[in-house]
Amino acid sequence: MSGNRVHSGTGENTVAGAGSASTRAGDAVRSAVTSPASRMAALARAELTLLGRSRSTLLSAVLMPLALPFSFRPLIDDMDVQDVGLTTGLVLLPAAIGFSLLFGVYSALTAIYTVRREELVLKRLRTGELRDTEILGGTALPVLVTGLVQSLVLVAASTAVLDMPAPKAPQLAVLGLLLGLALCAALGALTAALTRTVESAQVTPLPFVLASMMGSGVTVPLEMLPDRVASICELLPLSPAITLVRGGWTGDLSAYEALGPISTGLAWTVLAVFAVRRWFRWEPRR
């Protein structure tokens, strides 16, 4: 027997009380064989619909990262950023992208994965053709695209409002952003694994969010920290993304200097992905 079923297409088997629908349909109306891309697209579409329906996620993940950084502007104007060779824009834009990664991607995904697990959605999805990575990827896709779009909007806004020049090394900025997105998605899944209830998903992302805001150059550029502190902070998970984005605009990073943050960022991302594969929880604890 081949892998395909033989369909009679006659629809003789009708179901009492359930109308006249047949239990066997003709091949003509059947969907095609699925692929990883088509399955993830179907899942991502549903997640996008859900994102649009969740007012709290929209507010905290979409609007806040766009609005928050600009409220810091007076504060940054007061910092002596010129002393370390930066401008307000060069502090504000990486900060804004950092907020977008931390709130728009990382915290949002922690909540989404937790909710889907507790609703038994993840378990149900695992009974189908989707592979585990497709489930995680498809679920994250709308949030990742939102994060990417946010960053582009922020770049456009900074350019218009803060007279930001064009980036001198855009490839580094792009690389930093992509690294940040991948890392925040994996860490979101990992944090969800440590989150027991939907309610606690409001709290569990905070340690990484606060640590990154303080130590990864989001609120205070690493250039402004004492050297010894800065060299430790450079090793934090989100630091490479922010360093690369800022370096992409200033053009201060030589190819050699960029290697450090790139390898740190890659190492954290690989580590996080490995940890997710090892520890991710697909079902609620009983």
Partner: peptide, 30 residues
């Protein structure tokens, strides 16, 4: 597969849920 307890996002409609699943099933009926 029908699990003992169905796991579906509560904010999707019935049709949206079925469409999502249909996209993940080879040879899905309409």
């Amino acid at each position: 597969v029908m699990l003992q307890e169905g796991g579906f996002p509560s904010e999707l409609t019935v049709a949206e849920t079925a469409r999502m699943w249909g996209g993940c099933v080879s040879g899905a009926r309409p």
